[in-house]
Simulated scan of single mutants.
Amino acid sequence: MDSFSHVVLGAAIGEAMLGKEIGRKAILYGVLASNLPDIDVFGTLFFSDSQQLLFHRGITHSFLFITLISVLLGWLTKRWSKDSPVNWINMTWLFFIAMLSHILLDSLTAYGTGLFEPFSNYRISFNTIFVADPLYTFPFFFCVLLAFRAKNGSPQRTRWNNAGLCISSFYLILAILTHQYVYHVMEKSLKEQRITFDHFTVTPTPLNIFLWMGYSHDKDGAWIGYYSIFDKEKKVNYYRVQRNDSLLLPFASERSVKDLKRLSKGNYTVTREDSSLYFNDIRFGQISGWDKPNEAFAFKYNLNKNTDNKRALNRIKHKESMCVIFASLLKRIKGK
């Protein structure tokens, strides 16, 4: 999820766990801890672009990392604040739960989270919520803000903070249930059209849990389609995307290609644009693909040598303004 969502969730957890004992310090500790797993962004100083893509949400997002760091931070915090009414075990629990919320929330998105590293490099991705969803974050933020403004220990403070946690949790549960429903509808439509595939994935489109993208996987490519829970018919129109592995032959020994294949879990297509060759990760969806099937994918990694791929997830030059794209998204969400 985006950093702002982690900040809000961390603040709410801090207040709920130790707010009555140490006041607003609990919120500060919760915010800091909930964003600590993203310390991996500093990997850009040491790794290549493709290596950084794998390092992100890797070891610093694992159960092992947050357990060890929680114990260390709990002990250090108590050592620095010897007069605190809270013992180091309770501080450790605060750090652990705040960081746990971060890695679990990230695992609900499409990127993939290395929860079990270094013992397993498999990335967990439940594909139930987009990396930024205002319907999750803003009501939550409003409640936490009201709690923060109330006096420490007051019923209003506890009430608003608990309301934020309940509303946000309900939204995540709704996202999970909607994902399961849409998965059933889209997979059934795929089978009814007698389309063969190895496995099938459904993931939300930007900023909502109402319009979803579904994509299949086989050795040659994927079938992609879109479905809104407000669509009148449950038949999904799928279109074919070829992987074009032959275009990767000149790059077969490149470390970047191996990294990208691992990151995408085989869900990719290779395209040539002018003199550049791009590795497109299907999992992150398209820009306005719900409206125009041939639109570019959100993740485009330039395979040409000496190219900057630090912004592979948002390097696209939009043919239309963001207002037009957002309007088309809202229109498609309403159903057809």
Score class of each variant (00 low, 15 high):
residue 50 S to I: 07
residue 117 E to A: 07
residue 237 N to D: 05
residue 33 A to L: 14
residue 42 F to H: 11
residue 3 S to K: 12
residue 100 L to V: 01
residue 224 I to H: 07
residue 321 S to W: 07
residue 80 W to I: 11
residue 69 I to F: 04
residue 191 K to P: 04
residue 120 S to D: 06
residue 57 R to A: 06
residue 17 M to W: 02
residue 173 I to N: 05
residue 61 H to L: 06
residue 160 W to K: 09
residue 72 L to D: 11
residue 10 G to Y: 01
residue 119 F to K: 10
residue 212 W to Y: 07
residue 25 K to S: 04
residue 70 S to H: 12
residue 329 L to E: 08
residue 304 N to G: 08
residue 239 Y to W: 11
residue 150 A to K: 12
residue 125 S to M: 10
residue 88 W to T: 08
residue 208 N to Y: 14
residue 247 L to G: 03
residue 268 Y to E: 13
residue 135 L to H: 02
residue 237 N to Y: 12
residue 257 V to K: 02
residue 30 G to H: 00
residue 54 L to G: 02
residue 336 K to Q: 09
residue 202 V to H: 15
residue 262 R to L: 15
residue 196 T to N: 15
residue 52 Q to Y: 13
residue 177 L to K: 12
residue 188 K to M: 11
residue 67 T to S: 09
residue 1 M to V: 15
residue 170 F to A: 05
residue 88 W to R: 07
residue 283 R to P: 01
residue 102 H to D: 01
residue 281 D to R: 03
residue 87 N to S: 05
residue 219 K to Y: 08
residue 122 Y to E: 06
residue 272 R to M: 15
residue 56 H to W: 08
residue 51 Q to F: 04
residue 15 E to H: 04
residue 115 L to N: 00
residue 317 K to C: 15
residue 193 Q to H: 07
residue 240 R to F: 11
residue 2 D to K: 14
residue 78 K to W: 04
residue 310 K to M: 07
residue 189 S to H: 13
residue 301 Y to Q: 10
residue 55 F to S: 03
residue 222 A to R: 12
residue 191 K to I: 08
residue 322 M to G: 13
residue 256 S to G: 12
residue 6 H to P: 04
residue 98 A to K: 00
residue 91 M to A: 07
residue 164 G to I: 02
residue 22 I to K: 03
residue 285 G to V: 00
residue 262 R to T: 15
residue 286 Q to G: 06
residue 267 N to G: 08
residue 332 R to V: 10
residue 232 K to E: 14
residue 220 D to F: 09
residue 95 F to H: 02
residue 54 L to H: 02
residue 229 I to V: 06
residue 328 S to K: 13
residue 164 G to T: 02
residue 59 I to K: 15
residue 276 S to K: 13
residue 104 L to D: 01
residue 20 K to V: 09
residue 44 T to H: 14
residue 188 K to S: 11
residue 32 L to W: 14
residue 109 T to W: 00
residue 262 R to N: 10
residue 3 S to N: 07
residue 41 V to R: 05
residue 299 F to Y: 03
residue 183 Y to K: 07
residue 158 T to L: 10
residue 152 N to H: 13
residue 334 K to M: 09
residue 203 T to I: 05
residue 309 N to Q: 13
residue 170 F to N: 15
residue 128 T to C: 04
residue 280 N to Y: 10
residue 6 H to M: 12
